[in-house]
Write a protein that binds this DNA or RNA. Structure first.
Length: 660
RNA sequence: GCAUCCGUAGCUCAAUGGAUAGAGCAUCGGUCUUCGGAACCGAGGGUUGGGGGUUCGAGUCCCUCCGGAUGCACCA
């Protein structure tokens, strides 16, 4: 049972009785004001509606509270409600009811989580890397948050399509095709095709950047001089008018412009030097002066259906997808659909025609654009050269999700930086009659390094996801080894088990560290914090699980037999009561996650559960307990704790180990 | 210039318009000759960037200023 939902239902009934329907037709929002307390001294739940209702009904809030309490039928669930302060109604669940509900969990595979009565069809669109490039740390949050939401929605009984909207059709393919045609190392391609394709992509990119850097060198220098002139002018203004409030601001701003211009010059210089210092690259650069333009033409040819390029593309794609798949296996992620950009290609002309015929799109500077009210930037659906953009693809995707998948809600688990794009996308979709799909940008912040700049390797390169996980596992392994070697009765894990535990702890740590932050915030990446044995980490929770399982294993207690044998649960101490209550709130935690798509509410719940367990475990003897009924009750609580922790962690994509 | 997000303990972060703003780390101090130690309990630490406003009640909503991040026409 979800106590919160049940209590709100009861409150709703009472409010409907109390308030005449001509005063208020929907008491729902007031019933929602029943919430868990933040402090146990106020009980388990509190209803906060009497204060605002007092205003509305022109009665003292405490009188309203009294009226509500008189109509609330809660005898079977709660002790007598208490009215406190200005009109808070404090509720405390009956301990005997907690005990019977806890017993009900023992035989419930779903641990008290009732499937939603009206399932919706969700598309969860996440991860979405470019298939031509290896995944990097920039794909971590989308993958991790997306899969957690995916699993939680499913567990709650919704229909879910997880969809990996991969980039398999964009300009990067022109670059790869160009690279393949001119620079391919056939032997390397045969043995490790994806690595070779990635090399070709980087090479073509590097050569294009080189020519661009050479071409723009004078312009970049000029921009610096211009910015410096503007800066000295701003400084002169400041000196002349020290009282001008805006003058210091202008100086600061110009300083930023100068810094930015210099950074651009530096970055261009680095790109030139990389080639200039390498004779082999120099030769290549000289031989391919038009490389950027020619690569673009390869993309255009691919899109136009050129036989050779399409054949190459068809050869590349399965290889690229297989490489991604091995990454997803490490995370335990499975997609129902992998409908990339190329899938929607045949629908794009229709989208643009539709927009034109509805009078929504028009020409501007040669491009076909939708101008959305209140937004200065256009939503470009077709470029001047005739190519479509990701805006067009995204519109086609929405139409497909409505017409073919019959989706009710689409979640886009994508970087916050694309907020404007989604605003324009959703507004345009609505304008063209695709508003029935509830679309939601589930945005998230950036992962930062110690320096508060986006997380990079020491050399300044982006961090590959593969190596990130490898390092997490290696660090976890060192901890596992140290711990196991230090055990009082000698090591207990063999090499294979240690490797297994290291992987579970390492990857779990990475996932948990990401999910336990509010997704809106940027966060600073820290190996030490993520794998710490104490504190709010996956390891701590995984260890709580292993402790429970250890009791059963070491004493040859069979959990299944224990459940089958039944028995009662006794909640005679505060720690036991708190433990049972916490376990019974699992359902509430999962519902909370889905309200605003925030997995951190589940990490918080699991950490609290592990903490409640630590207290219970400390205060309540289990095997030493002489009374067989109490002992059995405590074992049942232990078993339930293990199941909730395991199920909860699994919903976040984190595995558990029986021994650590 | 316009837009979005952020500013909370020394540090890293939570907080669904509710009562005395919470965790973890770090610091300091306790408990335990363990059924089970990668243990547990406690303390100190805050004008929630500043100032206005709405509200019975604001870290949360609105306005404004300060400070930071990000994005803004043919890459996705």
């Amino acid at each position: 049972m979800n106590f919160l939902a049940e209590l709100r239902g009861r409150l709703r009934t009472a409010l409907t009785e109390l308030i005449p329907s001509d005063v208020m037709t929907d008491v729902g929002p007031y019933a929602e004001m029943l919430k868990p307390t933040q402090d146990p001294k106020f009980g388990d739940f509190q209803a906060n509606c009497a204060m605002s209702l007092g205003k509305l009904l022109k009665k003292p809030p405490r009188d309203v509270a009294t009226d509500i309490v008189a109509r609330l039928k809660l005898d079977d669930l709660c002790d007598a409600p208490e009215i406190a302060g200005p009109g808070f109604i404090n509720l405390k669940l009956r301990t005997d009811r907690l005990a019977t509900e806890a017993v009900a969990l023992i035989h419930d595979d779903r641990l008290g989580v009732v499937a939603v009565p009206t399932p919706r069809t969700f598309v969860v669109d996440y991860s979405s890397p470019n298939v031509a490039k290896p995944m990097h740390v920039g794909h971590l949050r989308s993958t991790v948050i997306g899969q957690a939401l995916d699993r939680v929605l499913r567990f709650l009984g919704h229909r879910v399509y997880s969809d990996n909207h991969v980039g398999d059709w964009g300009t990067q393919f022109g670059m790869i095709i160009y690279g393949y045609k001119h620079f391919r190392n056939e032997a390397a391609y045969q043995t490790a095709p994806v690595a070779e394709l990635a090399r070709l992509y980087r090479l073509v990119n590097q050569l294009s950047d080189y020519h661009e850097a050479v071409k723009t060198a004078t312009a970049l220098d000029a921009a610096v001089r211009l910015a410096e002139t503007a800066l000295s002018e701003a400084q002169r203004q400041l000196a002349a008018n020290p009282k001008d409030k805006d003058a210091p601001k202008a100086v600061k701003k110009q300083e930023a412009v100068v810094a930015e211009a210099k950074a651009a010059v530096n970055s261009a210089r680095k790109k030139r030097e990389a080639i200039d210092n390498d004779p082999a690259l120099q030769t290549l650069a000289a031989a391919h002066p038009q490389i950027a333009e020619l690569a673009r033409q390869e993309t255009a040819k691919l899109h136009a259906g050129d036989v050779d390029n399409v054949a190459l593309w068809k050869a590349f794609i399965p290889q690229c997808l297989a490489a991604l798949e091995s990454m997803y296996q490490r995370f335990g992620v499975k997609f129902d659909l992998t409908l990339g950009e190329s899938f929607y290609n045949p629908m794009l002309t229709g989208i643009v025609d539709d927009l034109k015929s509805r009078g929504l799109a028009r020409e501007s500077d040669g491009a076909t654009c939708v101008f959305v009210e209140g937004n200065a930037a256009p939503f470009i659906v077709q470029k001047a050269d005739g190519a479509f953009t990701y805006a067009t693809t995204d519109l086609a995707t929405i139409r497909y999700r409505i017409e073919t998948l019959h989706a009710d809600t689409a979640l886009y688990v994508v970087d916050a930086r694309q907020g404007e794009h989604f605003q324009l996308l959703f507004a345009t979709a609505k304008a063209m009659g695709l508003g029935q799909l509830e679309s939601r940008h589930v945005s998230f912040g950036t992962i930062l390094g110690d320096d508060r700049r986006p997380f990079k390797t020491r050399a300044g390169d982006t961090v590959g996801l593969e190596s990130l996980l490898d390092e997490a596992i290696a660090r976890a392994r060192a901890i596992v080894d140290e711990n196991d070697d230090g055990k009082k009765d000698g090591p207990e894990l063999d090499t294979a088990t240690r490797a297994d535990v290291a992987e579970i702890v390492g990857i779990g740590g990475v996932i948990y560290a990401d999910l336990h932050h509010n997704r809106d915030s940027d966060y600073i990446f820290s190996w030490d914090k993520m794998l710490a044995k104490t504190g709010d980490t996956a390891t701590y929770i995984q260890y709580a699980y292993a402790r429970v399982r250890g009791i059963f294993a070491r004493n040859n207690i069979d959990a299944d037999a224990l459940r089958q044998a039944g028995g009662t649960i006794l909640l005679n101490t505060p720690a036991e009561r708190q433990m049972a209550l916490q376990l019974l709130r699992f359902s509430e935690a999962l519902s909370d996650v889905v309200v605003d798509y925030r997995p951190n509410l589940l990490t918080q719940y699991l950490y609290d559960t592990a903490n409640s367990f630590a207290t219970f475990y400390e205060q309540c003897p289990i095997l030493k307990e002489p009374d067989a009924t109490v002992r059995n009750s405590r074992l049942l609580l232990c078993d339930l704790t293990a199941r909730v922790l395991k199920t909860g962690l699994n919903l976040l994509g984190i595995r558990v180990a029986e021994k650590m």
